[in-house]
């Protein structure tokens, strides 16, 4: 078993086999940080294939599951090695009144595979629930998605509530979704507009600098 073989199993979405392979490699003395670097490269490759639609959503979701299986095996080793570096903590959800979540789910996956810790609040999420969840998590970022023009104002509600509570500066608020735009983000005072899933990790990393 090699890191290359593990990488293939993750790409093919074989969660059970990838977990077992990771376990074997680690017990044989594989450096966990080296494994993380390998997995990061693997998921970047999978992400690029998905961005070009050479593979489709089910395939990248399966690869994400396989990665989770590997990460679960790595956890005790990473703790010994000083812990995994988390690039940022995000609460993510679709705003109240909106039941469309495919875009949010893709963003979640891309963020998780790029080293962000994500708490998924689901869809039809009340503005105050975003804020409460961010407080409970100690999040850096609140991410709000909207697919309908008439649910976009709910993104602004989150910002309004943060201001009312006097904690606007504590969180970066990022928005996305088909009808949203940079113009809309500026208008409501959001910190970042995410035009697509692929560019989101880099944009957030830049925002958190």
């Amino acid at each position: 078993m090699s890191l290359e073989a593990l990488s293939r199993l993750v790409e093919e979405g074989e969660a059970e086999e990838a977990g077992a392979a990771a376990k074997t490699l680690l017990s044989d003395g594989q450096d966990p940080l080296g494994m993380i670097e390998c997995m990061t490269r693997t998921m970047a490759r999978v992400g690029d294939q998905f961005a070009r639609l050479e593979i489709f959503l089910p395939e990248i979701m399966l690869a994400g599951e396989a990665l989770s299986a590997v990460v679960a095996e790595m956890a005790p080793y990473l703790e010994k090695a000083g812990g995994q570096r988390i690039r940022g903590k995000i609460v993510l959800g679709v705003v109240k009144g909106d039941l469309h979540e495919i875009g949010k789910n893709i963003v979640k996956l891309i963020l998780e595979t790029n080293g962000f810790q994500v708490e998924d609040l689901g869809y039809n999420v009340d503005a105050l629930a975003f804020v409460k969840a961010a407080e409970a998590m100690g999040a850096d970022i609140i991410g709000a998605s909207s697919l309908m023009t008439t649910t976009m104002p709910r993104q602004k509600e989150i910002i309004d509530i943060l201001k009312e509570m006097g904690i606007r500066d504590r969180y970066k608020v990022i928005i996305g979704g088909a009808p949203t735009s940079r113009l809309w983000a500026d208008k409501i005072g959001a910190d970042l507009y995410c035009p697509d899933a692929r560019s989101t990790p880099d944009l957030i990393a830049e925002l958190l600098k």
Partner: peptide, 21 residues
């Protein structure tokens, strides 16, 4: 076409402005 505002109020899904819009 779809309205985003009704009499100057932003329409919010499931709220009164949606009924009016």
């Amino acid at each position: 076409p779809i309205l985003e505002e009704t009499f100057g109020h932003l329409i919010e899904s499931s709220g009164p402005t949606e009924i009016s819009g």
